[in-house]
Design a protein around this nucleic acid. Structure first.
Length: 420
RNA sequence: GCGGUUGUGGCGAAGUGGUUAACGCACCGGAUUGUGAUUCCGGCACUCGUGGGUUCAAUUCCCAUCAGCCGCCCCA
């Protein structure tokens, strides 16, 4: 085989694409109910947008971006996530001036990260993302979380765990950050190299270090929750109250950290429990980003959103044995015998398709038995047999595959027999 | 970026330093001039991820490389 698919990408073949269509449609329907509207942004942007928007210190920017130069010498990057692009579009199209606020948007599309592929992690993967901009009401935090949970629930996914945390506002974060540095600094040499470099750059991330997770300073580390100022704490409590009201179970995990720099206040993840799933259990990640719009060059505008992976969703549905109600099978399969009947096939097939039926016929010159097998394999509800006899009577033999019964039907009455 | 593991027909899967690379499924044809099951018969890999090397000889040994899978890091 001369050409091979690029690493970390996949071809989605028909058996799978049916499922994709189903969950994508589900996403569109659900977002509509929540009154989120679709936005489609380019799959690549100026590199600087992601560097600024996602954060220079993040792994995404430091080592995972697909960056290239175009013929005009511009540095472009395949989008590694959707929020930065959405915010850029928000600012560029002056959505902050729209009459309807907040602006509630969603997108479904491929994202790209240069990483070592692994179960649940591809170099090209599809995210459903939701962003609500223009409101700092905790009710919308709860709405966004509720939307994600509803999506999974309606698809039949179980054993989900919603984890929420608050990263606090700028003041709270700074106080906490300083407390963390004070806590770890005296004994930072006991920690791994990554943690040592995290100390100054992003001490929060020391908390989810896997290497040093059992170090005594971990459990005794200052919790962000103890550093939330009154406003942040009040906000967090309201989000929780709304979740309670909506009867959405959740856990508060003070160590939940978002990897991207733009988050503040609400942060959440939806994870999947249970066996059979790989090491990666996060299905959805999201949170509030009140400083991002300004960072990208727009007016001060609060925002919140999440992104979830469709690949991981499909994987989760699979491990839980959830069967999606995907349509399959033909309404009818046309079997022809003899040259005359074969000549008549295109016209008949075309007419049936115009009436809205899903039909197919033979294009390999197979004999009747072969055509019948094909009809059976493709789960045709009816087989239409057209031979010399039927042709002579301007009719077709209609066989109901489930029962084996068959009946000679006039061509102009065929829809009355097999129409839906 | 690092580690482990795997790479034989459409799929699953044996196999050996040496004439013709098992088998199963699927598919195609025939037995059955017009009917989906079963059965029987026949067909279906100049080739064993790719490129080198060792050898009289390599799918089998060695090296490299690519890719899949799994894990670390991190995330969706």
């Amino acid at each position: 085989m001369k050409y091979k698919i690029p690493r970390g990408t996949q071809d989605i073949l028909p058996a799978q694409s049916k499922k994709w269509q189903y969950i994508e449609q589900k996403a569109h329907d659900l977002c509509k109910r929540y009154n989120y509207q679709e936005i489609r942004t380019p799959m690549f942007e100026q590199t600087e947008l992601f560097a600024r928007g996602v954060g220079d210190t993040t792994d995404i920017v430091q080592k995972e971006m697909y960056t290239f130069e175009d013929r005009g010498g511009r540095s472009l990057t395949l989008r590694p996530e959707g929020t930065a692009s959405t915010v850029r579009a928000f600012v560029e199209n002056k959505m902050h001036g729209w009459a309807d606020q907040p602006v509630k948007l969603y997108y479904i599309g491929p994202m790209f990260r240069y990483e070592r592929p692994q179960s649940g992690r591809m170099r090209q993967f599809v995210q459903l993302g939701v962003e609500a901009m223009g409101s700092a009401d905790p009710a919308i935090d709860a709405e966004v979380i509720g939307l994600a949970m509803d999506f999974y629930r309606e698809l039949g996914l179980k054993n989900l765990k919603l984890v929420v945390n608050s990263l606090g506002d700028k003041e709270s974060r700074n106080n906490h950050r300083n407390a963390l540095i004070d806590h770890f600094k005296p004994r930072i040499s006991e920690f791994c190299g990554d943690c040592q470099s995290r100390l100054e750059k992003n001490p929060l991330r020391i908390l989810d270090c896997k290497v040093d997770r059992d170090h005594e300073l971990m459990s005794s580390a200052p919790s962000i929750l103890d550093y939330l100022n009154e406003e942040s704490l009040d906000y967090f409590k309201k989000v929780q109250q709304f979740l309670n009201d909506m009867e959405i179970p959740y856990e508060v995990d003070a160590t939940l950290v978002r990897g991207l720099d733009y988050y503040n206040n609400t942060a959440f993840e939806i994870m999947i429990d249970g066996e059979g799933f790989g090491a990666i259990t996060t299905l959805t990640g999201g949170g509030r980003y009140n400083g991002l719009v300004e960072e990208i060059g727009g007016p001060t505008t609060p925002g919140i959103g999440f992104a979830l992976s469709l690949e991981r969703l499909l994987m989760a549905l699979d491990t839980q044995g959830v069967e999606l109600p995907v349509e399959q099978g033909l309404d009818a399969y046309l079997v022809t015998m003899g040259d005359q009947a074969k000549e008549a096939a295109p016209k008949l097939l075309h007419q049936l398709r115009k009436k809205g039926l899903t039909v197919d016929g033979d294009y390999l010159g197979r004999k009747m038995k072969g055509q019948m097998k094909a009809a059976d394999r493709q789960q045709a509800e009816y087989v239409l047999i057209l031979g010399e006899d039927e042709l002579a009577q301007n009719s077709v033999m209609v066989k109901t595959m489930a029962t084996g019964e068959q009946e000679l039907i006039k061509l102009n009455e065929i829809m009355e027999k097999i129409g839906k």
